[in-house]
């Protein structure tokens, strides 16, 4: 498998997109630090950008990469190589490349300027989000054999998790505001990896105090070690389940 990963890495480096992504993250993070000297506010502004950009880039890049390396996979599948090995190598190649770009692009400046606990959890949730959306992109790619459809599906997933789902939660809160909603909302949040990452991050910042009773409830929940464990486990499910489904489809796919 390591030999296959090696060639996937070569291929990823040749496209230069990963490098561009890294530079973009680096510049925007550095710019944020130039604009404001308070690391708390910087992480807050960064959070809003990252929650949009990381899922979008991860899901679109992975889908395009999947189709661009279709020939490579086809070639490998006629060789004495396990189909699962080929797909897992692809997953590792893409997700490690994207995660490293994120780690350097955002983690580097945070390390230099100091991001505190919020910075650390930002890195963690950013990397988790990358892995989740790479997983979802693989699922979208393997379910259709048409590149345009797969990219459309990937975009739809991104829209859903980044925008539509939030509107849905707002609607629930607005309509059922008279009821104690903390626990149902907690369940709803777990069904969206982006929200989960956002809440995980927010709870590490001081602003959660501004959110009143609900904020206090979540702060209590997400700051406890069981709360953090809960969110990490849910995010891991978000990585593993789509990828497991992808594997199931891929081993039966006709090339």
């Amino acid at each position: 498998m390591s030999r296959i990963i090696k060639y996937i890495f070569y291929d990823l480096l040749r496209t230069r997109f990963i490098l561009l992504y890294l530079v973009f993250l680096l510049i925007s993070t550095l710019a944020m630090f130039q604009l404001d000297s308070d690391p708390g506010k910087v992480t807050m502004s960064l959070l809003n950008i990252l929650l949009m950009i990381v899922p979008l880039v991860s899901i679109i890049f992975t889908t395009i990469h999947f189709y661009n390396s279709y020939e490579f996979m086809e070639l490998m599948l006629a060789q004495p190589v396990n189909r699962k090995t080929v797909l897992i190598a692809q997953y590792i190649g893409v997700s490690v490349a994207l995660a490293i770009a994120f780690l350097i692009g955002v983690g580097g400046p945070l390390l230099i300027f100091g991001g505190g606990a919020a910075g650390t959890s930002m890195i963690l949730s950013g990397i988790m989000l990358t892995l989740v959306f790479v997983s979802l992109a693989f699922l979208a790619s393997v379910l259709t054999s048409d590149k345009a459809k797969a990219i459309g599906g990937a975009l739809l997933l991104w829209f859903y998790f980044s925008l539509i789902y939030d509107a849905f939660i707002l609607w629930v809160v607005y309509n059922f505001g008279d009821y104690p909603l903390e626990k149902p909302i907690l369940v709803l949040i777990s069904l969206n990896p982006v929200d989960l990452a956002r809440v995980m991050m927010l709870m590490k910042m001081d602003i959660s105090a501004l959110m009143g009773y609900t904020g206090a409830f979540y702060r209590q929940f997400f700051s406890s070690s069981s709360g953090i464990l809960f969110s990490v486990v849910v995010l891991v499910f978000w990585i593993v389940i789509p990828f497991y489904c992808t594997l199931k489809v891929f081993v039966k796919k006709d090339i």
Binding site: R14, Y70, E71, L75, A78, P80, V81, R83
Partner: peptide
Amino acid sequence: IGTWKYRQKIGYMPQIGKYPDN
């Protein structure tokens, strides 16, 4: 069917060979 090691014994020449462009 469903295994892969046997492909060591097979040389396959496809009708339309597709290879990584780069």
